[in-house]
Computed example of a mutant assay.
Amino acid sequence: MKYFREILVSLSITLALLIFPAAAAALTLINMEMSADEFFRVGVQQLQRQNYQEAVKDFTAVIDLKADSAAAFSNRCLAYLQLEEYESAIADCSQAVELNSQNTESFLNRGLAYYRQGNYASAIADYNQVLKLKPIDFRAYYNRALAKSDLQHYQEALSDYNQTLSLMPIQDTFQLATVYNDRGTTRLMLNDNLGAIVDFSQSIYLNQQDYRTYFNRACANQRLSNYTAAIEDLTLALKLNPNYAEAYANRGIAYYQLGNEQQALLDLQKAANNFLFQENITAYQQTLDLLKQLKGEETVIA
């Protein structure tokens, strides 16, 4: 089985840290500071437009003019994060934290960079710092839950998902759907299949267009031998993603469990074809082996 998660990226921009020059400053200093402020404003606009390379250039210009700008380092960290340049992101967020230890966005984004590198312990340490400074930040709870889940600390992850759901704005329906889906996968890992189905169902209620959640609910139903329900969910997943190899494979297995060997073989062949197209050779070979096994059993039965 394959379960899915998505990381909630910190997209907050530290606009509140924009500082205008004091009126009493010398003329040359005012001009320099205003130039830095202008670069900062343009950099923020580039971030909002998802022009991350340009944002990096603008925040670099700010830093060249004003080396103690924690906001510029923090926002350039965010741009590097979006560009998947994680070492640069970590370096910038670390500098932002050194300049302003109260900036939760820097800790949050550095934590995400660590997470993307697979450094879950460091990510958790940064999320812990966010929660010390801002105990109601649901993003920190959510990202910490993901890291704890990857460390197989499922009970702790479940607690963080619960906190996330208690703090998230109810109008963020798509994000809520993602969190319910992720909590459901954690419940699966804890063998709470019924609880997982409840979470996946709530996720589907909030967002009916995510094929992965139907797949996950099908996995829970297959664990409970509810093969008919699993087939229904896998069919819905395939309507949303017709090339979903894993869904074909699992539906084939479910059909086989119900005695529909012909449909099982058809689905497994489709799964193998899609795995091959995706160049997932390991899954392709495993599916072929399963096909050979089932065909062999059919011959014996006949």
Rank of each mutant, 00 (worst) to 15 (best):
C77A: 12
R139D: 13
A125L: 11
Y114T: 01
D137S: 04
Y141M: 06
S122Y: 14
Q129C: 09
S69Q: 07
A61H: 07
N103H: 07
V62S: 10
D126I: 01
K57D: 09
D58L: 06
L108F: 00
A72R: 12
D68S: 12
D126L: 02
F73I: 15
A71P: 07
V97W: 01
N103P: 03
Y115A: 09
A121P: 03
V56T: 09
K134T: 11
F107H: 11
T104S: 05
I90N: 04
E85T: 09
A121G: 11
R110A: 11
S101T: 13
Y115E: 07
A125G: 13
R110L: 08
L133D: 11
R76T: 01
N103S: 08
Q45P: 03
L83F: 07
A89G: 04
V130E: 01
L108Y: 07
Q50A: 09
I136H: 12
D92L: 10
N128K: 03
Y127N: 01
T104G: 02
Q48I: 00
S74R: 01
S122W: 08
E98G: 15
I124Y: 08
V97R: 00
N128R: 08
A67N: 04
Q48A: 05
E87M: 11
R76L: 02
D64W: 03
E54Q: 08
A96Q: 08
E84L: 12
C77R: 11
N109I: 13
F107G: 01
L112P: 06
I90D: 15
S88I: 00
A113D: 13
A61N: 14
A91R: 15
I124L: 04
N128C: 05
S69P: 09
A91E: 09
D68L: 06
Q46H: 10
G118I: 13
Q48K: 06
F138E: 03
Y127V: 07
Q45A: 10
N103K: 02
V130I: 01
S69R: 02
A79H: 04
I63K: 02
A140Q: 14
A113V: 01
T60S: 14
I63T: 09
C93Q: 05
D137G: 02
L131D: 05
L78V: 06
G118D: 12
D92P: 12
F59T: 00
G111K: 07
L83E: 14
A113W: 04
D137K: 02
R110M: 11
A70G: 02
L81H: 06
E87I: 09
D92I: 14
Y127K: 01
R110W: 10
V130L: 04
D68V: 02
Y141A: 14
A72Q: 08
R76V: 04
V97Y: 00
A89R: 00
A91S: 05
Q102Y: 03
F107I: 07
R116F: 06
S106N: 05
V56Y: 08
R116G: 00
D68G: 03
L47W: 06
A113G: 13
